[in-house]
Design a protein around this nucleic acid. Structure first.
Lengths: 188, 188
DNA sequence: CGAGAGTTTGACGGCTTTCAACGCGGGTGG
DNA sequence: CCACCCGCGTTGAAAGCCGTCAAACTCTCG
């Protein structure tokens, strides 16, 4: 199996919309964010990816979204044709896509929550599952703006809600990019 | 290839969350809506499906969402193992999933629009692509409540926006479930 | 003809957005 | 070494849009 592994530093672009798809990128370690740029210039975050996740499934045409490293990370590039020709690998790929589809649907559910607090609570939940968490401590290597673009809120609203949670001890900052979830956020 | 085709009347449930997945359902004709029921009882519409679309990709476990017929429709049930063992069919399935993923992402983009008018304009666009449209005339066999559950708005807001569009001639009702899009809505 | 689901319209209040100013920290260059 | 600057985050005040509640209307189906 032909595989090449490439490392990316924090904030580095892994691939861009419009690039020609050649091989399928899978995150070995670290975390990444997937987004598009809308016609009006707004950024829309589509998904978060953690270790083990594929960053796209395009085998032929052009890519339709961007991927950026949230933390330093390693990405393995698999040859698409080889992957598909192996029945086991194809089944594995199918499973991966089904998982992605599940996350996108949770994202949809999150976005249809009416209050900012509910949306952000769902976001914390989703992020913990995408990026990994040890019990109540989780990494959240996103800027306020990125969280806003994920949840469909403004960065001010995100900031205000987090500030309130900090006072409640619902979500306390452990260090930069690391938070501890209080009981109210450990529902799922 | 083992396939059985079943017909469903309007409003009939094609499958429910919690059902055991056995075979993969593909819509031959008609239209369907996919949704989940949230813990608080709210319905969340996840996706629209038209002719040619698979309704889920679960091969093993339990289904996580419902599918309901929007119009009378025929559904073909394919045996999952057979489908996966054929390399061509597996590739086809992968393509289908990629398309679904694309639609979910457009849905995400739609939901992050801040104004009700923008969201509904995006919805019209998406629905036209999912359900098919001839030029400016499209079918929209959804209730106001279903549109609200798709767009994350309330049915009152949907109704008000449609009423305004009717006055603007932005979107005019041709007959029950059939609308004509004005120029403002034919952007894409 | 009656019943019930779906739709329309109105008034009001609240929550988020918007606009604006300020604080903080890290990196750069003098 | 220090001053400056820029990105990021925080906080405040005001306005607007949508959600909520409520009532009346339409259409379909029995």
């Amino acid at each position: 199996m032909t595989v090449s592994v490439i490392e990316f530093g924090k904030r580095r672009t892994i691939f861009a919309a419009g690039d020609k798809a050649g091989s399928l990128p899978k995150l070995i370690s670290g975390a990444a964010i997937l987004y598009t740029i809308l016609p009006d210039g707004r950024r829309q975050v589509l998904d978060l990816a953690g270790a083990g996740d594929f960053l796209h499934f395009e085998t032929g045409g052009e890519l339709d979204h961007f991927a950026e490293a949230l933390t330093p990370c390693e990405v393995a590039f698999y040859d698409a044709e080889e992957l598909l020709s192996d029945a086991d690998m194809a089944g594995f790929l199918l499973e991966q896509m089904r998982d992605r589809l599940g996350f996108e649907r949770r994202h949809i559910t999150l976005l249809s929550c009416k209050s900012a607090t509910e949306r952000l609570a769902e976001f914390i939940d989703l992020a913990a599952d995408c990026l990994g968490a040890e019990n109540d401590v989780m990494n959240l290597p996103l800027t306020r703006q990125q969280i806003a673009d994920f949840t469909g809120l403004t960065l001010e609203t995100v900031s205000r809600t987090f500030a309130q949670w900090q006072r409640d001890e619902t979500l306390t900052k452990v260090s930069a990019g690391t938070y501890r979830r209080g009981e109210a956020l450990l529902a799922a």
